[in-house]
Computed example of a mutant assay.
Amino acid sequence: MTAPIDWDDDPEPQPDGPIGWARQQQTERTQRAPDRQTADTITDNDLDRLYGELGLTTHLLANVRETCTTALNRAERAERLAQSAARDTAKALSDYLAAEQRAEQAEAVLTRLRDMAAAARASGARGITLDALDTLLNLPANEITRLSDTVISHTLSAASSEPKGPTP
């Protein structure tokens, strides 16, 4: 069984203030890199190697900045496209709901017309006009368009062939 940790017995005192923290960081860096060269002790080869690393690091930094800029531009474009798509979707939904409402209104009108035609037929009213109306009202919508011209022309030809009065 282990002994409980006593947090009050911290072997290293914590630094006070920003200066104390900076001194502690400097001490830790020195301990991690004791063979660090100074300007007085660095050789030309080591200096050339460091400049090469600096050039490579600068090049990599430029590539990272370019990549980040490109990614940011793509993200902004994607956000604009998403907002545009949301607007388009909202408009399409609004158009769909309006069309659905118009279709429901048209269906209600057709139902009312069917009821009127049935009432007229039940009262004994007859004629080519009621038959044409009944035919049209009971067809599917795509058939109504195709056959409406035929029914109308049939109605007109039947009306013109009926006698207009007493024949001499």
Rank of each mutant, 00 (worst) to 15 (best):
Leu97Tyr: 11
Ala106Lys: 08
Asp115Asn: 08
Tyr51Lys: 08
Asp46Thr: 14
Asp95Lys: 08
Cys68Gln: 10
Leu60Arg: 12
Thr58His: 07
Asp48Thr: 10
Arg49Asp: 04
Ala98Thr: 12
Asp35Asn: 14
Tyr51Arg: 07
Leu113Val: 02
Thr43Arg: 10
Asp35Ser: 12
Leu47Ala: 15
Ala106Glu: 12
Asn73Phe: 10
Pro140Met: 14
Ala92Gly: 07
Asp134Thr: 13
Thr27Ile: 15
Thr67Val: 05
Leu139Tyr: 09
Gln26Thr: 15
Tyr51Glu: 08
Thr89Ala: 00
Ala62Leu: 11
Ala62Gln: 12
Leu137Ile: 00
Leu81Pro: 01
Ala106Gln: 11
Pro140Phe: 14
Asn63Thr: 01
Leu72Asp: 08
Glu28Met: 00
Asp95Met: 05
Leu60Ser: 09
Leu147Tyr: 14
Asp115Ile: 04
Ala98Arg: 10
Thr135Val: 13
Tyr51Val: 06
Thr145Trp: 10
Asp134Cys: 08
Asp40Leu: 13
Lys91Asn: 04
Ala141Cys: 05
Asn45Cys: 05
Glu104Leu: 05
Thr145Cys: 08
Asn73Leu: 14
Leu110Val: 06
Leu61Asn: 02
Leu97Gly: 02
Tyr96Lys: 07
Glu28Tyr: 00
Asn73Thr: 12
Leu56His: 11
Gln101Ile: 01
Leu61Trp: 03
Ala92Tyr: 04
Arg146Asp: 08
Glu76Cys: 13
